[in-house]
């Protein structure tokens, strides 16, 4: 494992912890898209089907369990927790997210590395992760006023993607040259989606003003 991959995993982990911190201690999920969180839960569920059959390392297994557990508990909090669910801005979160799954599934059936259930589900999870942030970005755009923790959560998610791209570049030059078009293309698209957000995030940070997206 290289430093970029580790940095990517750690920012990913930090993003989840920031979100859980917000939900658990402030008992609020204001500004958070349930649709995006549901898609992330599906992403992890379909990607880690090999959790108990394909052992890679203790690190991998633990991280997978953390991502699975945290994504499902976040969804549970927003839907079921009697205090947290009241802060959910349902009217701002209207993205038809399950419609995003069909094109990903069809694409995974036709464009994959091997036509087996596990492989197609894994590919599906890669495609779905690339666009799972969309409902959240739409919600940000609508609410415009973003609290610090929500801003940090999305910033850390974007940082995770950026580090993964550096990781792939590093792996390309240091390992045997296998070409991973599926992960690369999906990963780059996913990272580009954060570009706009990053721009405004750094602007607000540089000028030391509250993060606010233009209408």
């Amino acid at each position: 494992m290289n430093i970029f991959r580790l940095a990517g995993d750690m920012t990913h982990l930090a993003s989840v912890l920031v979100l859980l911190l917000k939900i658990h201690t402030i008992k609020s999920c204001a500004g958070i898209s349930l649709k995006t969180q549901e898609l992330f839960a599906i992403v992890f569920l379909t990607r880690y089907l090999d959790l108990f059959t394909n052992f890679i390392s203790i690190y991998n297994t633990i991280m997978k369990l953390i991502f699975l557990g945290s994504s499902f508990s976040i969804v549970w909090y927003i839907r079921r927790h009697r205090v947290v669910r009241r802060s959910y801005d349902k009217d701002q979160d209207t993205f038809r997210h399950f419609f995003l799954m069909w094109p990903c599934l069809i694409l995974a059936i036709f464009i994959n590395e091997k036509f087996t259930l596990k492989e197609v589900m894994w590919t599906f999870s890669i495609y779905l992760e690339a666009i799972a942030i969309l409902p959240q970005l739409v919600m940000l755009q609508r609410t415009r006023n973003i609290d610090n923790l929500t801003g940090q959560y999305i910033f850390l998610l974007g940082a995770y993607r950026a580090f993964y791209i550096l990781n792939w570049i590093y792996r390309y030059f240091t390992e045997e040259h296998y070409v991973h078009w599926i992960t690369w293309v999906a990963g780059v698209i996913q990272t580009l989606l954060y570009g706009d957000f990053f721009y405004y995030y750094f602007q607000s940070w540089k000028n030391n003003v509250k993060l606010e997206l233009p209408a």
Binding site: H12, N60, E113, E119, W181
Partner: peptide, 10 residues
């Protein structure tokens, strides 16, 4: 390309 060699990522 070798199948599954990126399966060590999360």
């Amino acid at each position: 390309p070798k199948t599954g060699s990126f399966k060590d990522e999360l």
